[in-house]
Design a binder for these strands. Structure first.
Lengths: 111, 111
DNA sequence: ACAACCATGTCATAAAACCTGACACATATT
DNA sequence: AATATGTGTCAGGTTTTATGACATGGTTGT
C-alpha cells in the first residue's frame, strides 16, 4: 500500500466529526457498521475512530441509499469492488514480474 | 488558497488524536495554544478541533523546543514565516500581473 | 545564593461526547 | 396482514475534554 493510502487509513476521527463531514446521524453510521459496510477501529476507551477512507465510504453509502439501493445491495457492491481491486493488484504484480524478466534479458545483452 | 490547503485547514481532530499523532501531552498542547503558537477552532460544545496543519505546526514546535528554542523564540520564528509567506504571495501576484500585461501585448500583435 | 521565570505535571470538578441496548415508527416487501 | 428495513429517540453508564489551581525541576538574572 502506498504512503498516501496508509495516511488515508489512519484512524483519527471521532464520530462527531464524521457526522459533520457526511451529514449522516450517528445512528446511521453505527447501523452501517453493524451491517459491515464500514469497520472503524476503536480507541483505548472503546470509542470509534474513523479514517478518511471511512468517510469516503460513508459518502458512497449515502449516495447508494439515495439512489434506492438497499444495505444488502451495497454490501454486494463493495464485495465486488474488493474482488476487482484484488484482480487489479494481481495483474499489476504479474506485469511487474514480466517486466522484470524483460529487463533481466536486456541486462544480459548489455554485457 | 488551494483546494488542498483548504482541506489541510479543516478542523476535524479532537485533542486525543493530536496527542497520539504528536506524542505531546494535552497540557503541552493547551499551553502552546495559550501562547498563540496554534489556534485550533472549537466545536459546538467548546471542544478544540485541530486541523492537519495544526498537527504539522505542533511537530515543528516540538522540534524547536527540543533544539533549545523558547516559546518566545518560536513565536518570532512563526511571525517571520508569516511575513515571508505574504512577501512570496505578493511577488507571485506581481509576476502574474506582469505576465498578464505581456500576454495582452501579444494578443494585440496577433490581430 | 536567591528570586523570578519557564515549561510541564498533576489534581479537582464540571460539561460534553460517546457507548450500548431497547423500543417506536413509517415505509416497503412478501 | 405480517414481516423486514432504515432511522428516530431515550435512558443510563463510561470516556473524553475543559478550566483553573497548585506544585516542581531547570534555567536566568541580580
Amino acid at each position: 500500500m502506498s504512503e498516501r493510502e496508509l495516511r488515508r487509513n489512519l484512524a483519527i476521527l471521532p464520530i462527531g466529526t464524521v457526522r459533520d463531514l457526511t451529514l449522516l446521524t450517528d445512528r446511521q453510521i453505527r447501523y452501517y457498521e453493524q451491517n459491515e459496510l464500514i469497520n472503524p477501529s476503536r480507541g483505548k476507551g472503546g470509542q470509534r475512530r474513523f479514517s478518511l477512507n471511512d468517510v469516503d465510504r460513508l459518502l458512497e453509502i449515502r449516495d447508494f441509499l439515495d439512489a434506492g439501493d438497499s444495505i444488502k445491495d451495497i454490501q454486494e457492491i463493495f464485495a465486488k469492488q474488493r474482488r476487482k481491486a484484488v484482480e487489479k493488484q494481481d495483474s499489476e504484480s504479474a506485469l511487474r514480474r514480466s517486466l522484470q524478466k524483460e529487463f533481466a534479458q536486456i541486462g544480459r545483452f548489455d554485457r
